[in-house]
Simulated scan of single mutants.
Amino acid sequence: MRIHPHLLVAWAAFAAAPAFAVTNSASLTLAFDPPHSPPAVVIRRPADYLCATVTIRSTAKDTDRQAVAVQETVRRLTTAVQRSNTFQLHQGPVRVFGAGSGSSFLSGKTNYAPGSLQTGLRILSPLTPDAEVFEIIRQISLFVARIEVPNDAEVRVVSTTMAVADAEQQRDRLMQLIREQIAKTREQLGANVLTVTGLDGPVLVRQLDALSVELYLDYQLSATLEKLPDSQGR
């Protein structure tokens, strides 16, 4: 969401409006394309959702009309999603990593005028084992396009990507798998000094294929082979 200084008053009135009912408040982690291959320890699993990011903006020149148009469009889109048996509106926290390198089936740039007021919503489609991702994207695009919005408002699907709910809940499992890898590495290499860094980072999500993702910690493991002194200290 981008707010320019001369729109703050109008936006304050919009933000003070009653909150819409939350359809899905799970903590989401969006899949992204990491700059390097993930480490050896990963958890492979199906993604929970296809997440579509939708932007809403007003083309009105008057700031008050912009705020009204955006608010009304949010209301209509929210109502349509809540009445849908297919989609969910996400209003919980979202974790996005690797800015500019998202793993997206659909993405586009917004070329909005500097003085325009805009906001965004996330529409979720729960995924099943036999889901057809590109068909879901088509359905979301049609769903958004069919919503009647004020004449001075625009709605656009700007990106879609895989999402996982509560990825941090897999941290303990990942830590256990990493400990097992450390023990195996020590045994195979005969290493007596092992250094592990990066375990305090977030649980990341990388898209594996159309429906699957990998969860992992971006850690580094290094081993040092040192000759231990014999019984005579040599």
Rank of each mutant, 00 (worst) to 15 (best):
L121Q: 14
G100F: 03
T29Q: 10
K184G: 02
S141P: 03
A210W: 00
A131G: 00
Y219P: 03
P114A: 09
G190Y: 01
V54D: 01
S159I: 07
L208I: 06
G115C: 01
L124D: 01
Q88E: 12
L174H: 11
F134L: 14
P114C: 07
I147W: 04
T185S: 00
H4C: 11
L30S: 13
D48S: 09
Q91M: 13
S104L: 08
Y219C: 02
A47M: 02
A99W: 01
P202N: 12
P114H: 02
E214P: 05
L194M: 04
A80S: 15
A80M: 09
L174F: 10
L217S: 09
Q176L: 11
V193Y: 03
R122W: 03
F134Y: 14
H6Y: 15
R173P: 05
E168Q: 05
D130A: 12
G98S: 04
A40S: 15
T78W: 05
A153W: 00
Q139L: 14
I136E: 05
A52L: 08
P39M: 12
H4D: 10
L208Q: 12
D33R: 15
M1T: 08
T59M: 07
L189F: 07
L211S: 12
D62W: 04
R234G: 10
A99Y: 04
L228S: 11
H36L: 13
E135R: 15
R206Y: 01
P129G: 06
A16F: 00
V70N: 11
P126G: 11
R75P: 00
C51Q: 09
L199T: 07
N151E: 13
H90N: 06
D48Y: 02
Q170K: 06
S27R: 15
R57M: 05
P126F: 12
R83G: 05
P35K: 15
L50Y: 00
A19Q: 14
T59S: 07
R156G: 09
M162V: 01
N24Y: 01
G115A: 07
S107A: 11
M162A: 11
A67D: 02
Q91V: 02
A165V: 06
V164C: 09
P150V: 11
L7K: 01
F143W: 10
V9W: 06
L106R: 06
D209R: 08
A163F: 09
K109H: 13
R57D: 00
K184E: 02
H4E: 13
A52Q: 05
V41I: 15
R44V: 11
P93R: 03
P46R: 14
G102A: 12
S159K: 11
V68A: 12
G233H: 00
G115H: 05
A31I: 09
R146G: 08
P150C: 08
